[in-house]
């Protein structure tokens, strides 16, 4: 696989160097780790630490900012950060009110964040863990806690970050983030697999007419392999799997995230988005907001994931609160578009 890299050993440090060249005015690196924290943290707030393996950019780094994460503990490509790494970020963002860890439910992240929480407790820092378990593809809803975390983390950390900014205490931030997770669902389909930079082979194989249904974000195979179909047929299946899982009902307010996986053209994503909106209109589900782009990727994987979060009044208030990050243009209200217009169309 061709990649625009130098020595594979230097992928992370070189990526960080570039990143800090762009965002070094507002972010700083944690010494000896490829992790970043915000400069000028507001005093007296609960800290939000998110993290996991790298290789999913813009996840996690581009979600650092007020109303989002305060620190990102980043591991190697698709591998959890170490406990020592997470602890260093925890200490950097704790302002005496504790730190909430939000991460996707994967074995490595559970083990490393779990040990980091123990180390933090030994140093007198209180932490809470919020696991993101949004993937509907593989595990039945009654075993929700065993589900993987994929693109739904974008919503869970947005809500947690908004709650931190709103002055919620440690328990309350955890509770509202867990509520967000409980009403967030994602389904993904891959057309082509991704590769780990520097590795010779793709992480799974697909024939020219095959798709992987229920993909993971690390190149691991999904639930099953199926035949390629039309965009509408694929989207219909995905929306059905998501909607019946929560379930989402008529007149529910939802946010929708249409996530390319790294190599899907915007043209294709918009074709899929058109069908998602048709399906939701038919079901009478109200789209409060919809975003289309690359939010959490798996290198050059092609395909898409669809995420929905159901909003109650608390979640809607937090979701609509101000936030700033490298992804700001994707997630704040468009100032060029009046609020009234946005509401009348149901989206913008």
């Amino acid at each position: 696989m061709k990649k625009l890299i130098n020595d594979p050993k230097n992928i992370l440090p070189e990526m960080m160097e570039g990143y800090l060249g762009v965002y070094g005015d507002v972010l700083r690196q944690i010494e000896s780790y490829t992790s970043l924290v915000r400069k000028n943290l507001e005093p007296g707030k609960v800290g939000l630490l998110v993290g996991g393996g790298s290789g999913h950019e813009p996840l996690f780094l581009d979600y650092l900012g007020p109303g989002y994460a305060d620190g990102v503990a980043q591991g190697n490509v698709f591998a959890s950060p170490s406990p020592d790494n997470i602890l260093a970020v925890t200490k950097a963002i704790d302002r005496g009110r504790g730190v909430v860890y939000v991460f996707g439910n994967h074995s490595g992240d559970n083990l490393n964040f779990g040990m980091a929480a123990e180390l933090a407790a030994q140093e007198g820092i209180k932490t809470h863990i919020v696991l993101v378990t949004d993937d509907v593809a593989l595990v039945p809803p009654e075993r929700m806690k065993d589900r993987r975390g994929i693109a739904g983390i974008i919503y869970v950390m947005r809500i947690a970050g908004a709650a931190c900014q709103a002055g919620y205490d440690l328990d309350a931030v955890r509770d509202v983030a867990e509520k967000a997770n409980s009403v967030t669902r994602t389904m993904g389909v891959a057309l082509y697999p991704g590769t780990i930079p520097g590795e010779p082979k793709a992480s799974f194989e697909l024939a020219e007419d095959e798709i992987e249904i229920g993909l993971g974000l690390h190149g691991e195979p999904g639930a099953r392999t199926g035949k390629i179909k039309t965009a509408d047929e694929i989207v219909d299946e995905m929306v059905e799997a998501i909607v019946k899982d929560v379930p989402y009902k008529k007149n529910d307010d939802v946010c929708v995230l249409v996530n390319g996986l790294g190599a899907t053209s915007r043209l294709e994503l918009m074709i899929a988005t058109r069908r998602i909106l048709q399906d939701l209109t038919k079901l009478g589900i109200h789209v409060h907001d919809i975003k289309v782009g690359n939010f959490a990727i798996c290198q050059e994987m092609a395909g898409l994931s669809i995420t929905m979060m159901r909003l109650d009044s608390e979640l809607m208030k937090l979701y609509d609160s101000p936030c700033y990050s490298a992804m700001t243009s994707q997630f704040t209200l468009n100032p060029l578009r009046p609020q009234s217009h946005r509401n009348s169309s149901g989206r913008y």
């Binding site: 393996g53 591991g75 190697n76 591998a79 950060p81 170490s82 020592d84 994967h106 074995s107 490595g108």
Partner: peptide, 12 residues
């Protein structure tokens, strides 16, 4: 190994 690796295998 725990400090430098990360991932499930780092801890295990």
């Amino acid at each position: 190994m725990i400090k430098e690796m990360g991932g499930a295998s780092g801890i295990i």
